[in-house]
Amino acid sequence: MSDAAPASQSAPQPEPQYATVEQQAEAASFGMWVFLATEVLFFGGMLLAYTWLRANHPDGVAEAGRHTTVVIGSVNTLVLLTSSFTMAWAVHAAEHGRQKALTRLLSATALLGLLFLGLKGYEYHGEWTEHLVPGLNFHQDGPHARTIELFYFLYFLLTGLHGIHVTIGIVLIALLAVRARRGAFSARYYTPVEVTGLYWHFVDIVWIFLYPLIYLVGRSGP
């Protein structure tokens, strides 16, 4: 969590409330998992709303889904999956005390995150020009216009909140990269890398579920 231990290469000292460094590392990792459980329910509440919409207005949701930009969505999925891979690799490098590799892999992960956000922004721009932004710039015709509006209402909230999570992740990972470059981590102390990695993988998992729910709806239809 935010309670990072003092950076020291030789003999890391635990914070005063802990007896040992191991206890501190376990507490940080467990704390992150508890936080991720919280996050599951945070996104879960909105997924319930999505489920309700889709169950009650299946045709409208299918039509709305066909308005989404599946190419960007798929490329973005690839980007995030790859960033998860580089993050896992980064933790592995930290575990083995390879400072240079760690710095590079963290930087790569942050850059992939930025690429994701860039593509997402481009996609938002496209939706603005197509009048798909509920409440601000929405104009659609047809029998399902209302459902499309609700779909996009949830779409912007889901992807927006996910995007905030990605942004926070990028900041955290970039800070870690800077610290790694300064040699803050070693094979004996890399808890912040591990814990931030857990967070980043979780953000990836959220997207893994958002992808079919947003971009693949109604693709087999007319």
Partner: peptide, 17 residues
């Protein structure tokens, strides 16, 4: 689609996390 997502999520959970 959700089944495949679940498998992907499990892979990330099991091997990356």
């Amino acid at each position: 689609a959700l089944g495949i997502s679940a498998v992907k999520a499990l892979l990330v959970l099991a091997l990356f996390m």
